[in-house]
């Protein structure tokens, strides 16, 4: 939501919150939907309590109430094919639901049937967003629309509305790592999108390359996810990963970025990119 404006997470149509359509309850037989602004004392035109669900006037899909009322932000997760995008999303959600991030007082709720279905089938490529609400103690919930997109096929309208980007990087694609593993070099290509929003450059599959780091490296330490976003630890990881990415090559670094590394298989530092973005978006306490 920008000001009063709500961007439909499905069709990206911008409208005011008052323009979202509401429906009458079962007692008002077959009454057409009506704009929210026509509510009178929270009553429908028939004087009864309406249904809570709101509908986008353009595409007709239900917009969850939390999304319509809270400042919903679009987070785009991009990366090459099989870079680990789906695996990271799945591990991150689990981390918030039952893992260490939950110990930091954060909780995550998927909004709407569509998001729950999306979470249950992350393997199917789609531009369907996963809407989630992340709540923390003594703070308003942050509502995110998470889009998982292939790096070379991002719909411009989604990128235009993105508030943050998580760019997932498979280290096995990077030239320096491939040379180290004796693999054939792969052509590198610049990122098709110049991200002008906070971008989390996230190296995935850390468990595959962990032995490359010295004992003192932060990449051989567990994260501090149980304390939420810890800036000093995040900065330590950022300096370390940034130096490694420069050595491995093949990555264009955007201006506003923070580097991360994680292992979804081990649950190591999985929630950190999302915690940083929430911090940057001032959605949680640091």
């Amino acid at each position: 939501m920008i000001g009063d404006a709500v961007i439909c997470p499905y069709c990206r149509t911008r409208c005011s919150a008052d323009q979202l359509l509401m429906s009458c309850g079962p007692l008002c037989a077959s009454a057409p939907p009506f704009p929210a602004k026509t509510l009178r004392r929270n009553r429908c035109p028939h004087g009864r309590v309406p249904l809570a669900r709101r509908v986008c006037p353009a595409c007709g899909r239900a917009v969850p109430r939390e999304y319509a009322e809270a400042p919903g932000r679009a987070i785009v997760v991009v990366g090459e094919r099989e870079a680990g995008k789906s695996t990271w999303i799945s591990a991150a959600v689990r981390q918030f639901e039952t893992g260490e991030a939950a110990l930091a007082g954060l909780s995550l709720h998927l909004l709407g049937e569509s998001s729950r279905n999306r979470y249950a089938d992350l393997r199917t490529p789609t531009t369907e967003p996963m809407l989630m609400s992340i709540r923390s103690v003594s703070a308003k919930p942050a509502v995110l629309a998470l889009y998982e997109l292939p790096e070379d096929d991002c719909p411009p309208d989604i990128m235009a509305t993105a508030a943050g980007v998580v760019r997932v990087i498979d280290p096995m694609w990077l030239p320096g790592v491939r040379t180290l593993f004796g693999l054939e070099p792969r052509p590198t290509r610049p990122a098709p999108w110049a991200h002008h929003v906070p971008t989390a450059l996230t190296v995935s599959k850390l468990d595959l390359i962990r032995d490359m780091f010295t004992h003192g490296s932060p990449l051989r330490r567990p994260g501090l996810q149980d304390r939420g976003h810890v800036e000093s630890d995040s900065l330590d990881v950022h300096h370390e990963v940034e130096a490694w990415l420069a050595r491995w090559g093949g990555i264009d670094v955007p201006r506003d970025h923070r580097c991360f590394a994680l292992s979804a298989a081990d649950g190591q530092r999985v929630a950190e990119p999302l915690l940083w973005l929430l911090s940057r978006l001032r959605a949680t306490r640091t």
């Binding site: 010295t214 004992h215 003192g216 000093s232 900065l235 330590d236 300096h239 130096a243």
Partner: peptide, 23 residues
């Protein structure tokens, strides 16, 4: 300028200070 100490013995575990002190 980034600073960092290294032990010339790989078996050692070097504990670094706050990363902000290393810049």
């Amino acid at each position: 300028v980034h600073l960092r100490a290294f032990a010339l013995d790989d078996s050692m575990w070097v504990c670094h200070p706050d990363p902000r002190d290393l810049v």
